[in-house]
Structure formats: C-alpha cells, structure tokens
C-alpha cells in the first residue's frame, strides 16, 4: 500500500503505524460525576469495542517513519483504495469546533 501523507506525499505503508478507528470520540465525563451505566457503557465502547467494517473506513495512522504526523486515512478495507488523507489534528480541531 501507498499512503499519501499530507506532509510528505505518497509513501510505502511500512513507514506508517496503524492505530484504528478514527470515528471514535473520547467520552467527555465530568470530573467527579457519579459513575452511571451510560458512562460505563460509553467508555467501554470507546476503549474496547471496535467495528470491522467492510468497505470505507476512517482510521488513524501515524507516519512514524517520516514526519510523525497522525493522519486520518479513509481506506476501503476490501480493496485498500485510499479515498482521502487528512491531518488528524485538523480533523480533531474541526470536531472540537462543532462540539462547542
């Protein structure tokens, strides 16, 4: 596979490290909030539960052998076709902006 890093251009996948699902959001649990079932379920899903989608998947990769940027790569898990690569920080900032 070749992954087009948004900073370095297309590079072989061996330069990258895979993490996983980029659609998961870390639950925001207030400090000192009592532990309820909903909170427990949200954290359980965030830490332990992963989908194994067939087709397009947004996933986190890090260009560890290059610029060390974390990237959100949209990849088809059946064909390995890569539909887009974004800097993870940009995606995360946009996510924060919509939440606020």
């Amino acid at each position: 596979m070749r992954i087009p890093c948004c900073y370095c251009g297309a590079r072989g996948h061996e330069e990258f490290t895979y993490l996983g699902d980029a659609t998961l959001a870390r639950p925001s649990t207030e400090i000192g909030a009592p532990a309820d079932d909903a909170t427990a379920a949200a954290w359980h899903d965030y830490v332990y539960v992963r989908d194994n989608p067939s087709g397009r998947h947004r996933e986190l990769w890090q260009h560890t052998g290059g610029c060390r940027a974390w990237l959100v790569v949209t990849r088809d898990t059946r064909t390995h076709e890569i539909h887009g690569v974004e800097a993870a920080r940009d995606v995360a900032l946009a996510r924060e902006a919509t939440h606020e």
């Binding site: 986190l60 890090q62 800097a87 993870a88 920080r89 995360a92």
Partner: peptide, 12 residues
C-alpha cells in the same frame, strides 16, 4: 507516540 497521539488527536 502516546504523547503525539494525545497532542494531535485527543487534545488538539
């Protein structure tokens, strides 16, 4: 790597 993940993804 954990720190870079936190900085670029969890706490941009």
């Amino acid at each position: 790597q954990h720190m870079e993940h936190a900085l670029q993804w969890l706490r941009p």
